[in-house]
């Protein structure tokens, strides 16, 4: 009974999560071919041991060497990293005051405000990104308003630039930043702040010396929750970014669907995974520390 309970989810994840990665890795070592499926070699058990040996002999790291030779790829990795770092910082700047505001709101309001933060998370991601296309385009609502007020004389070009990508990421990932920071701030004992002020701290330095350090865990968790998925983001750079917006998720998609080069797409995926392991492990460790501190 217990064995069955463990085995069913275990085998499911093994078959549909681990095995697929092994296949990705294997195909990343294969060569592009005009065939179905479009790569070679394919493992042929019918030929027995000789077939398996021939199969391993043909695998090589060519695609990985290709990734280092064509500067498209490492530029895309670097630019994804840059975009992820900048947009994580921007999300923190926008999200912290909101989380702070909710944590300091009267008790009876908090549940409502909290739900208002979560609600967008339940609505379609694609639609939320799409909603900015009409706002940011050259004849869009933002330009109309700015022209009408008279701040600008000609429309700003925002859509299809990196600025639009930053706006899109901050907008869609904001709840991921707000929630952990709010959770940390809500636990914060207000009397600590009062003590700091009684001891001669200004309000600002009390915030800087007490509130910020005590919400550190929330800031770290929120930043990872924004940073990790942003690196591989595909929808936002494709809809809001321009032809010059390079992100590795988009490169992988195009490599697969447009160029039909499955071996290179697989190699891109393996390298992306290796890059992501570092922040994922750091995030897990942070969560672990948090859990131990709570107990």
């Amino acid at each position: 009974m217990r064995r069955l309970l463990i085995a069913v989810p275990f085998l499911w994840l093994l078959a549909l999560f681990i095995v697929p990665f092994v296949i990705v890795f294997k195909i990343s070592l294969s060569d592009l071919a005009v065939a179905i499926p479009p790569y070679t070699p394919t493992l042929d058990f019918a030929e027995g041991w000789a077939g398996i040996k021939a199969f391993f002999a043909e695998l090589d790291f060519e695609n990985y060497i290709w990734l280092t030779e064509d500067d498209l790829y490492w530029k895309a990795y670097l630019s994804s990293f840059k975009i992820a770092v900048i947009s994580t910082l921007l999300t923190l700047l926008v999200g912290y005051p909101i989380a702070y505001g909710i944590a300091r709101a009267p008790q009876e309001w908090r549940a409502l405000l909290f739900m208002l933060v979560i609600l967008p998370f339940w609505t379609s991601f694609l639609i939320r990104v799409y909603s900015w296309m009409g706002i940011l385009s050259q004849e869009g609502y933002l330009n109309q308003v700015l022209l009408w007020i008279g701040v600008i004389n000609e429309p700003l070009i925002i859509l299809n630039t990196n600025i639009a990508v930053y706006i899109g990421i901050v907008y869609t990932y904001l709840p991921f930043m707000i929630l952990p920071i709010y959770a940390a701030l809500e636990k914060l004992d207000i009397s600590l702040l009062e003590a700091a002020e009684d001891l001669g701290c200004s309000r600002f330095s009390a915030f800087w010396l007490v509130t910020i350090p005590l919400s550190k865990q929330g800031i770290i968790a929120g930043s990872f929750l924004v940073f990790i998925p942003t690196i591989g983001e595909f929808v936002i750079p494709s809809l809001l970014g321009g032809s010059r917006t390079l992100m590795i998720g988009k490169v992988l998609w195009e490599e697969f669907f447009s160029n039909r080069d499955w071996p290179v797409a697989s190699a891109v995926a393996v390298v992306l995974l290796l890059i992501l392991i570092i922040p994922i492990v750091l995030f897990q460790r942070n969560e672990q520390k948090q859990r131990e501190a709570d107990q």
Binding site: I6, P9, F10, L13, L14, L16, F17, I18, V19, P20, F21, I23, V24, I27, P37, I228, P229, I231, G232, E233, F234, G249, L252, W253, F256, W262, A265, S266, A269, L272, L273, L276, I280, F283, Q284
Partner: peptide
């Protein structure tokens, strides 16, 4: 490994999950 397999899919970029599952189905 079990808890790793529970947490990893949630942080995996969708493009990687999608690609790897497609390659599984094809093979």
């Amino acid at each position: 490994m079990f808890s790793g397999m529970i947490y990893a899919p949630m942080v995996m970029p969708e493009v990687i999950t999608g690609l790897s599952l497609l390659l599984l189905f094809i093979s």
